[in-house]
Design a protein around this nucleic acid. Structure first.
Lengths: 209, 209
DNA sequence: TAGATTGTTAATCGATTAACAATC
DNA sequence: TAGATTGTTAATCGATTAACAATC
């Protein structure tokens, strides 16, 4: 596998390829050409072939791609077979919603525990996942070494909570707070889900037709 | 205001400018130059000036930009002063979380009502917003003419619900389902929040350091 | 074999950055 | 006025698309 500095644009398209291939596989489709896939996805066949060529050679001339095989390969590139461990920090409405609805397993993650400051929540479970008191964070993280923390804490606690987790060795953050987090520790990755930015983009588009 | 085909890349940066300017304004900062703002945001001064020039001239030579004024201008470009009306369709955990936590007003939206199939929810309120039965959707939409629907329905109901709403005249969708929606009706806009794609991107980045 | 389709190289297109005259 | 900083034009860089030899 090559993977010499793959551009951000390519990386952001990978999950979408994965989604489409998963869907095709679910429909029992065995093979697909870049042109057919491109048509379905609304992108060019060239782009698909160019994107894939960043990681290797997955097709066969005259045939195209084996759907299941390519799905597995892209899953591998994305790291879904890594079984990254993950904790949720902040069990408000959103944290709760993710615990109950989000299919962490499909993305290759194992949700190990959730944390909240509220004493009323500590000791309870949601969807079989224990909710622990924030005071137990240090002990738990040092013992279980999760890879990723989901940040669903209030605005005001965002950066300080992130700092605390970075100190404990966590390097991946799925950030749902509206705060832009910073850290000068090496290899820390923030993936932001900025609801407000998304809605404002929609606002722009519907404001002028 | 010019605004001749502004690129997607520029549009997606606007909310971030808005956020930073709002923050600076909140801190009482009156003026800022493109270079200072660029430094804060981690982008070039050139890019900021180039982006803004798509919409007009908001600065002053030798001075820079008035923070409050530029914030207002970008808000205007984004349409936050349009007071778009919005409904939530699907009051599961996520819909509920948005109703309670998300500051729709800050993005210039007015949340008018929520809808759910569950008879147990119909007639209740969350955060002062009434939840109505899905059977009331047609009547309500034709009467109140909301601009945007937030789709927080299950996977399986996504496309059919969208179609139903498009029929009723809704053209903007804030889509939280993991489904890629389609419509051949003109001017329909889907803004997707694909949680899974976002998490997979993070997975990619932490898998190889 | 003939047809189809890949992976890759080259061409094009668009977006970002640099430079600078205009001017507050 | 001198210094600072804009808006814009030109240069560069990167990403997308097209073309095609290789080959299943």
């Amino acid at each position: 596998m090559k993977r010499q500095n793959v551009s951000d644009a390519v990386i952001r398209r990978l999950p979408r390829y994965y989604r489409y291939l998963d869907d095709l596989h679910g429909k029992g489709i065995v093979r697909i050409s870049s042109s057919t896939l491109g048509e379905k996805m609304g992108i060019t066949a060239s782009q698909i072939r160019q994107d894939l060529s960043c990681f290797g050679e997955f097709g066969q001339q005259g045939y195209g791609y084996n759907v299941e095989e390519l799905r597995t390969e892209i899953g591998h590139i994305l790291g879904v077979d890594h079984h990254h461990r993950l904790i949720i920090v902040g069990v408000g409405n959103l944290g709760h919603a993710l615990m109950q609805n989000f299919r962490f397993h499909d993305a290759g993650f194992i949700l190990e525990a959730a944390f909240d400051v509220s004493p009323a929540l500590a000791g309870t479970q949601v969807a079989g996942i224990p909710i622990l008191d924030m005071a137990e964070l240090e002990r738990f993280v040092l013992e279980h070494r999760p890879d990723v923390a989901v940040l669903t804490v209030p605005h005001s606690a965002a950066q300080s909570t992130a700092d605390r987790l970075i100190d404990l060795g966590i390097r991946g953050f799925w950030n749902f707070t509206n705060v832009e987090l910073v850290s000068d520790v090496k290899n820390v990755r923030f993936e932001d889900v900025h609801f407000a930015d998304s809605l404002l983009t929609l606002s722009y588009r519907i404001t002028r037709r």
